[in-house]
Amino acid sequence: MKSPAVSYKRHRFPQQIISNAVWLYFRFPLSLRLVEEMLLERGVVVSYETIRRWGRKFGPAYAKLLRRRRPSRRDVWHLDEVVISIAGKKHWLWRAVDQDGYVLDEIVQSRRNTKSAKRLLVRLLKKAGMPPTRIITDKLRSYGAAKREVMPAVEHRSHKGLNNRAENSHLPLRKRERTMQGFRSPGSLQRFISIFSALRNLFVPPSHKRSALSTHIHRIRAIAHWKAVTGATA
């Protein structure tokens, strides 16, 4: 039997329990204590602090192994930024999604200016390996200035009404922010969203596959892929 890509050595709990706890915490708007209670109902006695450590240790490894969407030259990038208060200080979460709502990248930054927008675009180009057919943003001028430096030939549409896809992509994180009662540091937020968005990308079907049957099939395949990545089927 093929061994999982993630090592569970020196952990007394089996990989099925660890991966299930991490899945519950990052996939659903649950607190660590609620995940602890759900596992207890199944006969698994584990503290919420242990679940937190599992998420911190295994979450990034899982996210790295999850299936990624192949970029296309026909892609449309929707860019948006949202303010998040951390320890009483404003930070900005910059996010890019494609035409299906798939999260391409997101980065926490302390400024809302051209330099920050340029950093996001450079990261996106490096990850995708190719520019999109166009980008859509709100009226923030920093996007236009950054786009002219990084990808001057790409079409840019700046209109708040066209950017609902990017704006709506913030809503799931907002729900988690309330459940978690905020984030402790920019680093903890960056770590969390990298795992959180990787699971959303895997489990949430694209907008053109929203019938009941196609959604059901999509989630079955997603669960199978998750178990293969985490070794939960071993």
Rank of each mutant, 00 (worst) to 15 (best):
H170Q: 03
R134L: 15
I135S: 09
S169M: 13
K160G: 14
A146K: 04
H159Y: 14
A198R: 01
F183S: 09
K126Q: 06
T179E: 13
L189D: 07
E149A: 02
S185Y: 09
E167P: 04
V122A: 10
P131T: 10
L171K: 13
I135H: 06
P132R: 15
E167C: 13
S142C: 14
L120T: 06
P152W: 05
L125N: 05
L202M: 07
G144Q: 15
A198K: 02
L125F: 13
L189V: 01
L121D: 03
N168T: 07
I136C: 10
K147T: 14
E177K: 08
K147R: 15
F203N: 07
R174T: 01
R148T: 06
D138P: 00
A166P: 03
A128D: 03
S169I: 02
D138E: 03
R174C: 02
L162H: 14
A153Q: 14
R184T: 05
Q190L: 02
I195F: 03
L199T: 08
H156D: 08
F183H: 08
S194A: 01
R134C: 15
M130F: 02
N164V: 05
G187A: 06
S194D: 00
G144I: 11
K127P: 12
S158P: 09
R148M: 12
Y143E: 01
S158V: 10
R119E: 11
G161P: 05
R123G: 07
A146I: 04
S194N: 00
R141K: 14
R141T: 13
R123C: 08
K139A: 12
R178L: 13
Y143W: 09
E167Q: 15
N163L: 13
N164S: 08
L124V: 07
A153V: 07
E149M: 02
I193Q: 07
E149Y: 00
V122P: 07
S194Q: 01
I195G: 04
S188G: 02
L171N: 05
A128V: 04
L125M: 11
L121Q: 09
R123S: 10
K147D: 14
E149W: 00
L120K: 12
Y143G: 00
T137Y: 05
L199N: 06
Q181G: 02
L171I: 07
A128Y: 06
T179F: 12
L140P: 08
G161D: 06
S194E: 00
T133I: 14
M151H: 00
A198H: 01
K160D: 09
E149D: 11
V122Q: 15
A153P: 07
E167H: 15
L140T: 08
L199P: 12
P152G: 12
I135K: 05
S197R: 00
A166G: 15
L171E: 10
H156S: 03
K175N: 03
P131L: 13
E177M: 12
P172Y: 05
M180I: 10
A198E: 04
A128W: 08
R148V: 05
K127I: 11
S169Q: 06
N168Y: 06
S169W: 09
N168V: 04
I193R: 05
L120V: 06
A198Q: 04
L199G: 07
D138C: 08
K127D: 10
E149Q: 07
R176W: 13
K147H: 14
F183C: 11
